[in-house]
């Protein structure tokens, strides 16, 4: 005798719940392994567990560390630029620029460009070998910035500098003193070089 419809429904429902439960476990395993495995420091174990989850994390844009303002809020960065225009004049500016980047979300998206490149660029006082080794990471990105600025301004040549803005302590504000911004040259790029990359 075939099972009653209610029993069949109940079995199908159980199977569905089992499937959904497994999917949820996989999803949250991925959600949790992403911040466990990066940014550093992270365990070797988390790196091993991460591997099978990489397709899911990448496909759903879930590979985040969620370290908002951590471990410590640091100084802000801007990219300062000087552009030579075809008529021989020059134009200076910075990215981001609170005066001209509107709306604020546009400012913030451009601010992220400077912040993410700043993470890769060692300060000018770092050992020469370390600065040279890091170039392979940041130079292609800086050339992209150069290319975009030359495109949007119609310039022929651009010089870029990374500025780390001094973050004054409360005592300095009270005393009315401050420190110097840290400036790191990023290079000068002709239009052709920036495009070639």
């Amino acid at each position: 005798m075939p099972p009653a419809p209610s029993l069949r429904r109940s079995a199908a429902q159980r199977l569905l719940r089992l499937g959904v439960s497994l999917a949820l476990l996989v999803y949250f395993a991925a959600v949790i392994i992403a911040p466990l495995s990066g940014p550093p420091p992270a365990s070797e174990l988390s790196q091993v567990i991460l591997q099978p989850f990489r397709p899911l994390l990448g496909a759903l844009y879930l590979g985040h560390g969620y370290r908002f303002f951590a471990p410590d809020p640091g100084p802000g960065h801007t990219i300062r630029w000087t552009i030579a225009l075809p008529d021989g004049s020059t134009r200076t500016g910075k990215t981001p620029d609170a005066e001209s980047d509107w709306p604020r979300l546009m400012y913030h998206r451009r601010f992220m460009v400077a912040e993410k490149i700043a993470v890769l660029v060692p300060p000018p006082f770092a050992p020469a070998e370390a600065r040279e080794a890091a170039k392979g990471d940041w130079l292609p990105l800086v050339k992209g910035v150069a290319s975009n600025l030359l495109r949007s301004t119609g310039g022929t040549r651009i010089t870029l500098e990374l500025v780390e803005h001094y973050l004054p302590g409360p005592q300095e504000i009270v005393a009315g003193t401050s420190g110097e911004d840290l400036v790191t040259p990023l290079g000068t790029f002709a239009r052709r070089e920036a495009l070639r990359k």
């Binding site: 969620y66 951590a70 471990p71 410590d72 640091g74 802000g76 601010f111």
Partner: peptide, 25 residues
């Protein structure tokens, strides 16, 4: 996000909010 902050001395010292507030950018 909270665990990440526990790495930072400024969160333990109770000064981290200053670092965010004083950042001109």
């Amino acid at each position: 996000s909270g665990c990440g902050k526990l790495f930072g001395a400024s969160w333990w010292e109770g000064t981290a909010i200053w670092g965010a507030a004083a950042n001109v950018q």
